[in-house]
């Protein structure tokens, strides 16, 4: 984990403000060091956003009916895939769901999972797309 000088200076100023006028240089140093080491403990996915991960974005949409999410999540769990985030919207009869999944611990590769999902989609009469997260990161984040 790399911290720029600016960030350290900002931390120090914050620490001085928190500790008040009575703080000795040693006390400030101790608090800052503690904060810095805490920063280092952040999980990798937050501290290094450039890392290519096994994160896949699953988008599905179609006419809403019961059992869609149940079927999709069941297929995912059978492939030992972790769901990292999920969001859905319903507009009249249509539903849209977007899921962020992590396939790095799954015994299956992306191709197999896409094939499983294609079967799901056919059964449920909806559309399911699986795309690597990078394409969204490249297109929507500078």
């Amino acid at each position: 984990m790399r911290i720029s000088e600016d960030e350290i200076r900002k931390l120090t100023l914050e620490a001085i403000e928190e500790l008040g006028g009575k703080a000795t240089p040693d006390m400030v140093k101790m608090v800052v060091q503690k904060s810095v080491s805490k920063l280092g403990e952040l999980p990798d996915e937050i501290s290094s956003p450039n890392l290519t991960t096994g994160r896949i974005i699953l988008t599905s949409f179609g006419i809403n009916h019961p059992g869609i999410i149940a079927k999709i999540t069941q297929t995912l769990s059978e492939a030992e895939i972790d769901i990292k985030d999920l969001s859905q919207k319903i507009l009249d009869k249509f539903y849209t769901m977007i899921m962020i999944i992590d396939i790095s611990n799954s015994p299956k590769n992306l191709k197999d999972i896409q094939e499983d999902m294609a079967k799901c989609a056919e059964e449920l009469k909806i559309k399911i797309y699986l795309q690597h997260e990078d394409v969204f990161r490249y297109m929507h984040r500078i």
Partner: peptide, 17 residues
């Protein structure tokens, strides 16, 4: 979610439609 709903749908719209 690190991406907004609209952003993801925009990409899907571009590639699919």
């Amino acid at each position: 979610m690190p991406y907004q709903f609209e952003e993801i749908l925009e990409t899907i719209r571009m590639t699919e439609i």
